[in-house]
């Protein structure tokens, strides 16, 4: 019984996993195949059909419609957001984790509670606020809002991670004469690197893929990041699915690069905060 069991098990496991993996890949493959077909072929035979031929024209069309410009816009928003977020979040987390700041528990809970609010609730008030401050319909406004919106979560996660750093290490540095900021810069930051890398790649993906805030806070076509730009390729009734699919594949490239580069941290990052 046990002998057959141990022989059948790996087969079941690999068989089941292959099916699951295939299910994951199918939508992606469908997008890639669609991006290589002509519009007439799609309109004629529908999405779920065998392509008559493959062509790179949709990619060319997507790039000609100004997709580079919107990817640059996305990066102009995403990169500052990631840097500022990590900087502010690590400082705040260090303060909250290692210093007896009054109301620190309340602060943390407040940040966590802020995360539980759906973004949709904040859209209109934030829109009005940015208008009052004169940063509506500007990239600066997007950077400020996206940083503010994510900060609570990153502080919470980093706080959990930093509490895991042994107190002895920071105490030793203090005894050797390091200032509070010196401890943060020389001891805590290097030790938090894996968490920062994981959060950085998460922040990059989330910010780069944001659609809700950009269609709320931006109006000028020239400033739109790539997600609303792709949305803009859809017509009211008719859409060139092949061009949209090609644009989606292109837009996925930056996040894929970031993910591949930080993959190691990404997976370890999933466990962040699980051990307090």
């Amino acid at each position: 019984m046990t002998a057959t069991n141990s022989r059948v098990r790996p087969w079941l496991f690999h068989g089941g996993m292959s099916i699951l993996a295939a299910l994951w890949v199918v939508p992606l493959a469908l997008v890639v195949v669609t991006s290589l077909r002509t519009f007439d072929d799609l309109a004629d035979a529908g999405l779920a059909s065998v392509p008559k031929g493959l062509t790179f024209d949709p990619y060319q069309q997507a790039l000609e419609s100004g997709e580079w410009h919107s990817i640059v816009n996305s990066l102009l928003i995403t990169v500052p957001v990631v840097i500022v977020t990590l900087l502010l979040a690590s400082m705040a987390a260090y303060g909250l984790a290692r210093h007896r700041i009054p109301f620190r528990k309340t602060l943390l809970l407040l940040m966590l509670a802020g995360n539980l609010l759906p973004a949709q609730l904040l859209l209109i008030p934030v829109l009005k606020l940015t208008e009052q401050f004169g940063i509506f319909d500007s990239r600066i406004g997007m950077i400020v809002v996206l940083t503010a919106v994510g900060l609570g979560f990153y502080v919470f996660v980093l706080h959990g991670f930093m509490r895991g750093i042994p107190e002895e290490v920071t105490h030793a540095a203090k005894i050797d004469g390091a200032t509070t900021f010196g401890v943060y810069l020389r001891i805590v930051l290097p030790l938090t690197k894996p968490a920062m890398a994981a959060l950085g790649s998460l922040a990059f993906t989330w910010t780069f893929n944001d659609l809700l805030w950009s269609i709320t806070l931006l109006r000028d076509e020239q400033k739109l990041p790539v997600t609303p730009a792709i949305l803009g390729m859809q017509g009211e009734f008719v859409s060139s699915w092949n061009v949209i699919a090609a644009a989606t594949v292109i837009a996925a490239i930056p996040t894929v690069i970031v993910f591949l580069r930080f993959q190691r941290y990404f997976i370890s990052g999933l466990l962040i905060g699980s051990s307090k």
């Binding site: 208008e131 269609i215 109006r219 076509e221 949305l231 803009g232 859809q234 017509g235």
Partner: peptide, 19 residues
């Protein structure tokens, strides 16, 4: 300035009340 129809529809109320 061109905006995708669904987003346009969503934005118009806010747009008309902008300063």
């Amino acid at each position: 300035n061109t905006m995708e129809p669904a987003a346009f529809q969503q934005q118009i109320r806010a747009d008309l009340t902008l300063a």
